[in-house]
Amino acid sequence: MLHKVIIKSIITLTIISGVGVAFMPLTSEATTCSLSTAVTGTTSASCDIPIYATVGQAISITISPDPVSITAVPGGPIATASVSTTVVTNTTAGYTVGLYTVDEGGNYPHSPALEPSAGNVTLPAGVPTVGSSYWGVKGGNGAYASTYVGLQKNTPTIFYTAAAGSYDIHDTSTTTHAFTVGASASTVQPAGTYTGKIQAIATTAS
């Protein structure tokens, strides 16, 4: 008796999966075409594809993910999270991506320490080290490509510099640049949540 139930279930699952697979491309289309989407029947779909015509020089930035969360264990290893920045520009002069810490209102220069949700002990900017309390960033192609740096209050940290002609806007390997945010906590660092803001700003190097 039970095997009949299982056979029926498998048949039903096959039908459901088939229908699901048939609809799956439509689901993808619907999520990727976010302007106006029209679905007719069950076998065809259409959507408006936005077209941008920018006359003149332009630069764009994409940040992913946002925000980043790091869980550092007191006395434990350096906890990390990766952030991806994608810069696309039609200028040929090159571009830079700088990192700054900003305050609640988005203003800088700002003390780069992460603020605690309770109490007044911050998590200072610096080079994360096992046994010490610091947070920092590394990545890009500059001086901090492989070593952490604590963001400074009055000195912008340039994390990526693209020389003229060194990038192709159609090749994400030349336009996407990752940086890592790392944090470590000493055994006396109060447990809790710490919050901060980083502004990544892309400008051309004309």
Binding site: I59, S60, I61, T62, I63, P65, D66, P67, V68, S69, I70, A81, V83, T85, V102, G106, L114, S117, W135, V181, G192, T193, Y194, T195, G196, K197, I198, Q199, A200, I201, A202, T203, T204, S206
Partner: peptide, 25 residues
């Protein structure tokens, strides 16, 4: 000067907000 346009990020307690911005010099 640089004119900066920014897209404020997500604000969650206990996380670091990443603000993407672009500048026009």
């Amino acid at each position: 000067a640089v004119l900066v346009a920014e897209a404020p990020g997500q604000i969650n307690p206990g996380s670091i907000e990443i603000i993407g911005s672009v500048g026009s010099i």
